[in-house]
Design a protein around this nucleic acid. Structure first.
Length: 269
DNA sequence: AGTCACCTGATT
DNA sequence: AATCAGGTGACT
């Protein structure tokens, strides 16, 4: 569920609450969350301090005082936040870290698709080496975008979801960016018209940057579900509703087993 | 490059 | 009862 902006908000909020917190103990309710690692391995985290949380694409890294790092992926329904006491944890808390000040870091995940692993610097290199450019970094230029899309004829919408091409875009913001740039989602990625490159680059950055700001502002309560901001979403989950530009009913199609929303008039396929 | 599996809960 | 969900990795 969370895409780059929501993960970014989780990390920023986490740092405000738990930077330099020390882990007292770990409780793993669902061993699947740490598989193929074993719950016993997590005893290595007792009495280590979390130096800081950082984000790369949709990945969260918690750097620890013992030189190791916790690698967390929220997948579809994960969330990570701090509560004042472990007894306040929700039913869907799959793993939690009790802190030495008695607070607790909750990894909540209704569908239990999320993952938490203990990783080394070499592991982190492996993970990051498989990720494309960060779309909000200055290094992400229209030229870089063009290179990312040049090596596949797949429709551009599923190509935008490929984390090796551009890191952090998910199903909502892929549809949103293509609508903003008025690009049919079926366009072969390597055949994007030259005059659409800059509009797409601008749209990706604007959509994500706007969502980063609003996702962070939206989180006032720790346990709130992570939802992409619905206000301001132009096409996602709006099938049949009028296009905000031309009032044509928004259409839905399935690409690579995921819903794509688009305006049949602004983005004719 | 396309299909499926991993899970649970909400909606139809 | 069946379908759908904002993600990814392991298959064919």
């Amino acid at each position: 569920m969370p895409e780059l902006p929501e993960v970014d908000a989780v990390v920023r909020r986490f740092n405000q609450a738990a930077q330099n917190a020390t882990i007292h103990s770990v409780k793993i309710e669902r061993p699947g969350i740490v598989a193929p690692q074993l719950p016993a391995q997590f005893k290595a985290l007792h009495n280590t301090t979390i130096l800081a949380a950082r984000r790369r694409a949709k990945h969260i890294f918690l750097d620890l005082s013992n030189g190791l790092t916790l690698h967390i992926h929220l997948r579809m329904t994960g969330n990570l936040y701090v509560l004042p006491d472990y007894r306040f944890r929700p039913h869907s808390a799959r793993l939690w870290f009790r802190l030495t000040d008695n607070r607790v870091i909750i990894f909540e995940d209704q569908r239990a698709f999320g993952r938490i692993h203990i990783v080394t610097p070499a592991d982190i290199e492996d993970i990051e080496s498989k990720l494309g450019p960060e779309p909000l970094e200055p290094a992400f230029t229209p030229s870089v975008l063009k290179q990312s899309l040049a090596t596949t004829r797949s429709p551009i919408k599923p190509a935008l979801l490929d984390q090796a091409r551009i890191a952090g875009i998910g199903n909502i913001y892929a549809s949103e960016a293509l609508w903003h740039a008025k690009i049919p989602p079926t366009t072969p990625a390597n055949q994007l018209p030259a005059n659409k490159l800059k509009p797409l680059h601008t749209a990706i950055r604007k959509v994500l940057q706007h969502a980063v700001t609003s996702a962070y502002a939206a989180y006032t309560n720790p346990g709130d579900p992570i939802e992409s901001e619905s206000f301001g979403v132009a096409v996602y989950d709006r099938e049949g509703e009028p296009c905000l530009r031309c009032h044509t009913p928004i259409a839905r199609m399935v690409q690579a087993q995921r819903s794509t929303y688009f305006c049949p008039h602004c983005q004719p396929c």
